[in-house]
Design a protein around this nucleic acid. Sequence first.
DNA 1: ATTGCAAATGAGAACGATTATCATTCGTAT
DNA 2: ATACGAATGATAATCGTTCTCATTTGCAAT
Lengths: 144, 144
Amino acid sequence: MHQPEHLKNAGLKSTLPRLKVLELLENAQDRHLTAEDIYRKLHEAGEEIGLATVYRALTQFEAAGLVTRHNFEGGQAVFELERGPHHDHIVCVHCGRVDEFYDKIIEERQRAIAKKLGFKLHEHTMTLYGECSGRDCPGRKNKG
Amino acid sequence: MHQPEHLKNAGLKSTLPRLKVLELLENAQDRHLTAEDIYRKLHEAGEEIGLATVYRALTQFEAAGLVTRHNFEGGQAVFELERGPHHDHIVCVHCGRVDEFYDKIIEERQRAIAKKLGFKLHEHTMTLYGECSGRDCPGRKNKG
DNA sequence: ATTGCAAATGAGAACGATTATCATTCGTAT
DNA sequence: ATACGAATGATAATCGTTCTCATTTGCAAT
Ligand SMILES: [Mn+2]
Ligand SMILES: [Mn+2]
Ligand SMILES: [Zn+2]
Ligand SMILES: [Zn+2]
């Protein structure tokens, strides 16, 4: 369900490459993807697109509020389609799994801290790092 | 007060370049510096040192727990000497000013969230971004 | 349907931050 | 003082991302 209107509404011309990127973000199993993930997945699906175009599309989507960029530690930025409300992330240091959460108390405290320090708060990043308990996580201490 | 013992205790050989970097981190007015900040300040002070050596020293200090690396948004990583207990940061989007804070409630919530999601928490990053109220901040709405 | 033109694309060059290479120098234990 | 492994510094290389520019496309006016 990739609507050209989504792009039009965001003030972006509806082009084939942009629609492909948007569609992939909508349908991919993983919500958090690097530019190269997207480039690779599109090529695997037989779609022609340049890497520079993927980067440009993502930057524009971000500016339009369609997409959020995260700089988890380590090289590449990851992008996710803006679906629901704000949330933060916890990342497994072994398998890279990303879980999402929202904590009202933390958000309140952040606002209070900014106020106390004399800042007009714009946004924040918060990422927790740890070891997940996935059955297939390589960091798992193999017990039954 | 740059003690060779600090390096020795950290398992690092006491060399002149490392002592210079450590001394600068101890004495610089700004607690949060990029590798190039350090390189530049040392050269301005007439000290000979290679940029690669600055990067290597910082990476080793980090591994030894003497220094913490932060990836605030935008290009360069910043480093700070590990002095007291853990804290997080709030950064002014206009002037780059960095303030530090610690919030016990947030830290507690983070632990609870990780537990609920089945993660063994290792660490976290939290950075707030906003507009500071410094007299000389360029983003300041000039009112008396 | 054709035309015209600004905007978008893609290939590859360029860029900035960081790391790797390697010949030379240094630190330190004998 | 000697010796040897580790550290240094100049520079090349790497990596993610952005820029350049010739070509193509979207789209609106014929
Ligand atoms: Mn997310
Ligand atoms: Mn700090
Ligand atoms: Zn995992
Ligand atoms: Zn400011």
